[in-house]
Protein backbone atom coordinates (compact mmCIF):
# COMPACT_ATOMS: atom_id res chain seq x y z
CA UNK A 1 0.00 0.00 0.00
CA UNK A 2 2.54 2.54 -1.12
CA UNK A 3 0.28 5.59 -0.86
CA UNK A 4 -1.01 5.13 2.65
CA UNK A 5 0.26 7.86 4.95
CA UNK A 6 2.00 6.41 7.95
CA UNK A 7 4.76 8.22 9.76
CA UNK A 8 6.92 5.13 9.79
CA UNK A 9 6.70 4.53 6.05
CA UNK A 10 8.62 6.33 3.33
CA UNK A 11 6.78 7.52 0.19
CA UNK A 12 7.89 4.28 -1.46
CA UNK A 13 6.06 2.28 1.18
CA UNK A 14 9.13 1.03 3.00
CA UNK A 15 9.73 1.65 6.69
CA UNK A 16 12.13 4.42 7.56
CA UNK A 17 15.38 3.19 8.98
CA UNK A 18 17.02 5.24 11.73
CA UNK A 19 20.11 7.11 10.60
CA UNK A 20 22.36 5.46 13.17
CA UNK A 21 23.89 8.74 14.37
CA UNK A 22 25.59 6.98 17.23
CA UNK A 23 29.16 7.42 18.36
CA UNK A 24 31.69 4.94 16.99
CA UNK A 25 31.86 1.70 18.91
CA UNK A 26 35.07 0.55 20.57
CA UNK A 27 35.86 -1.85 17.74
CA UNK A 28 35.08 0.70 15.01
CA UNK A 29 37.54 3.07 16.66
CA UNK A 30 40.07 0.26 16.92
CA UNK A 31 39.73 -0.56 13.21
CA UNK A 32 40.23 3.06 12.20
CA UNK A 33 43.20 3.47 14.55
CA UNK A 34 44.95 0.34 13.28
CA UNK A 35 44.27 1.21 9.65
CA UNK A 36 45.65 4.71 10.12
CA UNK A 37 48.72 3.39 11.93
CA UNK A 38 49.41 0.84 9.17
CA UNK A 39 49.25 3.64 6.59
CA UNK A 40 51.30 6.05 8.72
CA UNK A 41 54.03 3.46 9.23
CA UNK A 42 54.13 2.62 5.54
CA UNK A 43 52.96 -0.99 5.98
CA UNK A 44 50.16 -0.40 3.49
CA UNK A 45 48.57 2.52 1.67
CA UNK A 46 45.05 3.88 1.41
CA UNK A 47 45.12 2.99 -2.28
CA UNK A 48 45.95 -0.65 -1.49
CA UNK A 49 43.12 -0.83 1.02
CA UNK A 50 40.69 0.63 -1.51
CA UNK A 51 41.92 -1.80 -4.15
CA UNK A 52 41.22 -4.73 -1.80
CA UNK A 53 37.72 -3.42 -1.03
CA UNK A 54 37.05 -3.04 -4.74
CA UNK A 55 38.39 -6.52 -5.45
CA UNK A 56 36.09 -8.02 -2.81
CA UNK A 57 33.09 -6.07 -4.07
CA UNK A 58 33.81 -7.31 -7.60
CA UNK A 59 33.49 -10.94 -6.52
CA UNK A 60 30.02 -12.36 -6.85
CA UNK A 61 28.16 -15.66 -6.95
CA UNK A 62 28.51 -15.49 -10.74
CA UNK A 63 32.12 -16.69 -10.28
CA UNK A 64 30.96 -19.79 -8.45
CA UNK A 65 28.14 -20.33 -10.95
CA UNK A 66 30.68 -20.43 -13.78
CA UNK A 67 32.74 -22.99 -11.86
CA UNK A 68 29.69 -25.18 -11.20
CA UNK A 69 28.43 -24.93 -14.78
CA UNK A 70 31.82 -26.02 -16.05
CA UNK A 71 31.85 -28.96 -13.63
CA UNK A 72 28.46 -30.00 -15.03
CA UNK A 73 29.75 -29.99 -18.59
CA UNK A 74 33.41 -30.99 -18.30
CA UNK A 75 34.02 -34.32 -16.49
CA UNK A 76 37.77 -33.77 -16.21
CA UNK A 77 37.21 -30.36 -14.60
CA UNK A 78 34.60 -31.85 -12.26
CA UNK A 79 37.17 -34.42 -11.12
CA UNK A 80 39.76 -31.68 -10.61
CA UNK A 81 37.27 -29.56 -8.66
CA UNK A 82 36.37 -32.42 -6.32
CA UNK A 83 40.06 -33.25 -5.83
CA UNK A 84 41.24 -29.68 -5.16
CA UNK A 85 38.67 -26.91 -5.56
CA UNK A 86 41.22 -24.14 -4.91
CA UNK A 87 43.51 -25.30 -7.71
CA UNK A 88 40.61 -25.86 -10.12
CA UNK A 89 39.16 -22.39 -9.43
CA UNK A 90 42.57 -20.78 -9.95
CA UNK A 91 43.07 -22.76 -13.15
CA UNK A 92 39.81 -21.23 -14.40
CA UNK A 93 41.33 -17.80 -13.80
CA UNK A 94 39.75 -16.80 -10.48
CA UNK A 95 42.05 -14.98 -8.09
CA UNK A 96 40.93 -16.55 -4.83
CA UNK A 97 44.01 -15.52 -2.85
CA UNK A 98 45.12 -18.01 -0.20
CA UNK A 99 41.64 -19.51 0.21
CA UNK A 100 41.51 -23.31 0.60
CA UNK A 101 38.32 -24.57 -0.96
CA UNK A 102 36.54 -27.93 -0.84
CA UNK A 103 33.74 -28.70 -3.29
CA UNK A 104 31.01 -31.11 -2.17
CA UNK A 105 28.62 -32.53 -4.72
CA UNK A 106 24.89 -33.07 -4.45
CA UNK A 107 23.68 -36.31 -5.99
CA UNK A 108 20.45 -38.25 -6.15
CA UNK A 109 21.26 -39.62 -2.66
CA UNK A 110 23.10 -36.79 -0.91
CA UNK A 111 22.34 -33.14 -0.21
CA UNK A 112 25.10 -30.96 1.23
CA UNK A 113 24.66 -27.72 3.16
CA UNK A 114 27.31 -25.36 4.52
CA UNK A 115 27.34 -23.48 7.82
CA UNK A 116 29.94 -21.94 10.13
CA UNK A 117 28.83 -22.26 13.74
CA UNK A 118 31.86 -20.50 15.20
CA UNK A 119 31.68 -17.31 13.15
CA UNK A 120 30.65 -16.89 9.53
CA UNK A 121 33.37 -18.49 7.38
CA UNK A 122 32.28 -18.28 3.75
CA UNK A 123 34.12 -18.70 0.42
CA UNK A 124 34.21 -14.92 -0.07
CA UNK A 125 37.20 -15.04 -2.37
CA UNK A 126 35.09 -16.88 -4.92
CA UNK A 127 31.45 -15.97 -4.14
CA UNK A 128 31.81 -12.48 -2.66
CA UNK A 129 30.21 -11.40 0.62
CA UNK A 130 27.84 -13.79 2.39
CA UNK A 131 24.13 -13.11 2.77
CA UNK A 132 23.17 -11.61 6.14
CA UNK A 133 21.19 -14.66 7.19
CA UNK A 134 24.30 -16.84 6.83
CA UNK A 135 25.82 -14.88 9.72
CA UNK A 136 22.70 -15.03 11.91
CA UNK A 137 22.70 -16.99 15.15
CA UNK A 138 19.49 -18.73 14.07
CA UNK A 139 20.99 -20.14 10.86
CA UNK A 140 24.28 -21.06 12.52
CA UNK A 141 22.76 -22.83 15.52
CA UNK A 142 19.80 -24.52 13.82
CA UNK A 143 21.50 -25.85 10.69
CA UNK A 144 23.68 -28.29 12.65
CA UNK A 145 20.75 -29.60 14.67
CA UNK A 146 17.70 -29.46 12.39
CA UNK A 147 19.00 -29.01 8.87
CA UNK A 148 15.87 -30.43 7.25
CA UNK A 149 13.65 -27.91 9.00
CA UNK A 150 15.99 -25.09 8.01
CA UNK A 151 16.09 -26.29 4.40
CA UNK A 152 12.30 -26.56 4.32
CA UNK A 153 12.10 -22.91 5.36
CA UNK A 154 14.25 -22.13 2.34
CA UNK A 155 11.80 -24.11 0.19
CA UNK A 156 13.94 -27.24 -0.09
CA UNK A 157 12.06 -30.31 1.13
CA UNK A 158 14.09 -33.48 0.89
CA UNK A 159 12.82 -37.06 0.86
CA UNK A 160 13.80 -39.33 3.77
CA UNK A 161 15.98 -41.43 1.49
CA UNK A 162 18.25 -38.44 0.80
CA UNK A 163 21.14 -38.15 3.24
CA UNK A 164 21.77 -34.61 4.44
CA UNK A 165 25.41 -33.79 5.01
CA UNK A 166 26.00 -30.63 7.01
CA UNK A 167 29.50 -29.15 6.78
CA UNK A 168 30.52 -26.98 9.72
CA UNK A 169 33.28 -24.74 8.39
CA UNK A 170 35.22 -24.69 11.66
CA UNK A 171 38.81 -24.07 10.62
CA UNK A 172 40.96 -23.47 7.54
CA UNK A 173 38.77 -24.78 4.73
CA UNK A 174 35.93 -23.08 2.89
CA UNK A 175 33.18 -24.94 1.06
CA UNK A 176 31.13 -24.73 -2.10
CA UNK A 177 28.25 -27.04 -2.96
CA UNK A 178 27.99 -28.33 -6.51
CA UNK A 179 24.23 -28.51 -6.82
CA UNK A 180 22.61 -31.25 -8.88
CA UNK A 181 22.26 -30.34 -12.52
CA UNK A 182 18.60 -29.71 -13.29
CA UNK A 183 16.78 -31.95 -15.74
CA UNK A 184 15.84 -30.71 -19.16
CA UNK A 185 19.28 -29.22 -19.80
CA UNK A 186 20.85 -31.94 -21.94
CA UNK A 187 23.25 -30.50 -24.44
CA UNK A 188 23.32 -27.05 -22.79
CA UNK A 189 26.62 -25.19 -22.77
CA UNK A 190 28.29 -24.03 -19.56
CA UNK A 191 27.36 -20.48 -20.51
CA UNK A 192 23.69 -21.43 -20.78
CA UNK A 193 23.77 -23.37 -17.51
CA UNK A 194 25.53 -20.80 -15.30
CA UNK A 195 22.43 -18.56 -14.86
CA UNK A 196 20.65 -21.56 -13.28
CA UNK A 197 23.23 -21.73 -10.47
CA UNK A 198 22.07 -19.52 -7.61
CA UNK A 199 24.08 -18.35 -4.64
CA UNK A 200 21.88 -20.37 -2.29
CA UNK A 201 22.36 -23.51 -4.38
CA UNK A 202 26.11 -23.20 -3.76
CA UNK A 203 25.53 -22.86 0.02
CA UNK A 204 23.12 -25.79 -0.11
CA UNK A 205 20.06 -23.88 1.06
CA UNK A 206 18.69 -23.89 -2.47
CA UNK A 207 18.61 -26.00 -5.60
CA UNK A 208 19.72 -24.97 -9.05
CA UNK A 209 16.92 -23.33 -11.02
CA UNK A 210 14.97 -25.40 -13.51
CA UNK A 211 15.03 -24.22 -17.08
CA UNK A 212 12.06 -22.09 -18.08
CA UNK A 213 9.70 -24.21 -20.13
Amino acid sequence: MPHDHHDHLSPSGHPYRPDGDRPLTYWQQMEIAIRELLIEKGVTTAAEINAQINAMDARSPANGAAVVARAWTDPAFRADLLADASAASRAMGYDIGPMRLIAVENTADVHNVIVCTLCSCYPRNLLGLPPDWYKSRAYRSRTVKEPRNVLAEFGVTLPDRTTVRVHDSTADMRYIVIPARPGGTDGWSAGDLAPLVTRDSMIGTGLAKRPAV
Binding site: R148, V166, D168, S169, D172, M173
Partner: peptide, 29 residues
Amino acid sequence: PLLRIRFTMAELWGSAAEHPDDTLDAEIY
Protein backbone atom coordinates in the same frame (compact mmCIF):
# COMPACT_ATOMS: atom_id res chain seq x y z
CA PRO B 1 47.15 -32.09 10.94
CA LEU B 2 43.57 -30.97 10.48
CA LEU B 3 41.05 -33.77 10.20
CA ARG B 4 37.58 -33.65 8.76
CA ILE B 5 35.56 -35.75 11.15
CA ARG B 6 32.14 -37.05 10.13
CA PHE B 7 29.56 -37.50 12.89
CA THR B 8 26.09 -38.96 12.63
CA MET B 9 23.26 -36.76 13.82
CA ALA B 10 22.30 -39.66 16.13
CA GLU B 11 25.71 -39.35 17.80
CA LEU B 12 25.40 -35.58 18.20
CA TRP B 13 21.79 -35.21 19.26
CA GLY B 14 20.66 -38.67 20.42
CA SER B 15 16.92 -39.18 20.31
CA ALA B 16 16.46 -35.49 19.50
CA ALA B 17 18.11 -35.99 16.11
CA GLU B 18 15.94 -34.87 13.26
CA HIS B 19 17.13 -37.74 11.04
CA PRO B 20 19.66 -40.05 12.74
CA ASP B 21 21.56 -41.06 9.61
CA ASP B 22 22.21 -37.52 8.39
CA THR B 23 25.77 -36.42 9.04
CA LEU B 24 27.80 -33.45 10.13
CA ASP B 25 31.41 -32.91 9.05
CA ALA B 26 33.72 -30.56 10.94
CA GLU B 27 37.42 -29.72 10.80
CA ILE B 28 39.13 -30.66 14.05
CA TYR B 29 42.83 -30.19 14.84
